[in-house]
């Protein structure tokens, strides 16, 4: 039987962790773009747009991410597309991330006083200009800490993609366990790698929140 050193295990896990990082970045950036669209729909003047965004968010926040992954994986196949795991994983994670970011950002936009909207409207600004020049610059300040905090959820969410067969850190953990029969060491190391990825983000989110605690300053 081949002997595996801890270094062998760690090296292979770290190689796979690259895919966790890539998938997290793709999901976060893609989810951010879709989330911004959702935000605009959610605070739109049109009732139908608001309702759409509301139900979208309700649907994605009210169902397990794992189910969304399964549906993306098997559902896209119905259209005759051969779906590789990375595509289903990326798509589901982007849509899921968007729902949460859209809702977080809506809270931040709504925290901006009504007077700001009225003032900018009185300057003859259109809806988009109001958002671009007045509301978003202020809302972004409040939005930074929870957004950074949510990125931790995205990284942890990528672990589920291992279940539909995308090879990232968690999947590598299973594969390496099957080769080495050392689940304690392997999953312990996997957990530590996730921790090393997530903890700096959690911590900076907390620090940012303390620094930019504008939302609660008036209470």
């Amino acid at each position: 039987m081949i002997e595996f050193t801890t270094w062998d295990i760690l090296r292979n896990l770290l190689l796979a962790a690259r895919w966790t990082v890539v998938l997290s970045l793709v999901s976060f950036v893609g989810g951010g773009i879709v989330g911004l669209v959702l935000l605009f729909l959610r605070i739109s003047k049109r009732k139908s747009a608001r309702a759409f965004a509301k139900y979208y968010i309700e649907l994605f926040q009210g169902t397990p991410l794992l189910m969304q992954l399964f549906i993306a994986f098997f559902g896209l196949g119905l259209f005759g597309i051969d779906v590789p795991a990375w595509l289903a994983a990326g798509l589901a994670l982007i849509l899921w991330t968007a729902a949460f970011l859209g809702e977080i950002w809506r809270g931040c936009v709504e925290a901006i006083g009504k007077g700001q909207w009225e003032a900018s409207a009185s300057l003859g600004m259109g809806r988009l200009q109001q958002m671009r020049f007045v509301i978003l610059p202020q809302a972004m300040r409040i939005a930074v800490p929870p957004t950074v905090g949510f990125s931790v959820q995205v990284i942890k969410g990528t672990a589920l993609t291992s279940i539909i067969g995308f090879v990232e850190l968690s999947k590598a953990g299973t594969v390496v366990t099957n080769a080495t029969f050392q689940p304690f060491t392997v999953y312990g190391l996997v957990a530590l790698i996730y921790f090393a990825l997530c903890w700096p983000l959690s911590k900076s989110s907390q620090i940012l929140e303390r620094k930019l605690n504008v939302a609660h300053r008036n209470h």
Binding site: L160, S170, Y187, F195, C198
Partner: peptide, 23 residues
Amino acid sequence: VELIRNTPFLIQLFFIFFGLPSL
């Protein structure tokens, strides 16, 4: 608290189910 909040639930589950028997 920090350890749990910064690792995926799936890995916690695997660690408990597959890892703890070796203890």
